[in-house]
Amino acid sequence: MDTRPDAWIVLLAVLGMSGLIGCRNYQHAQILSATDKDMVGSHQAGAATWKPLIDEAVVRLLARSVDSVETVSYTTPVGLSVRTVCFAGVENRSSEPLGDFREQIYEHIDSLVGQSPHFQMVSRRYVEAAMKEIRCRPDALILPANQRQLQASLERVDQPFDYLLFAQVTSGTTDINGDYQRDYLLTLELLDVHTGVAIKESAQLRKGYHKSYLGRLRYELTSRR
């Protein structure tokens, strides 16, 4: 008889615990402020990877192209040399799908390069329509015949270009017993369609993926040595 109250307490405790552990939860969200850090993707690259890569690669390309690029589309009345660029899209050669980030990468690069006073971007809508018309994939644009077809198609809508801009995402993976390091490389290539001269700049970011928190701890301890 004395053990019965104890049994009830144990039963209530078990039910209470199970209720706490086993309740279903609704999804929640919050707005991130400008000072909040980007969230780091647990399985693949996200905002924390792509944003700094884009910024670095574009800044490098712009800095180099001001001096290196020779062909000029036109000069403004104040003497500023402007080059017209046709952005041929982002090619994903990495081992991860870019998902909806692909569009973001395109738009970020397009806007950042377009903000430079030395470059004028051909609208994406013109580029897509022209490439669809001639049925030319971005990777086939390296062929002069395809370039001429694209040029002709864009000239018909009064949008000639002098440079082709290619963006490429690649990755390299190092596996260590299930945990792995993945290096992401964003390469921007600006090709002068008149001379065939290209300048290339890239930015790299390394990221470690761990199966568990213990794996991360183990990595941090060993990497300090």
């Binding site: 041929a88 899209g89 090619e91 994903n92 799908p97 870019l98 692909r102 395109y106 994406r124 580029v127 897509e128 490439m131 669809k132 049925r135 030319c136 994939r137 971005p138 990777d139």
Partner: peptide, 11 residues
């Protein structure tokens, strides 16, 4: 339908 995404279609 988007030719700029030709490599996505391949994947």
């Amino acid at each position: 339908e988007r030719i700029l995404d030709a490599d996505v279609t391949d994947r």
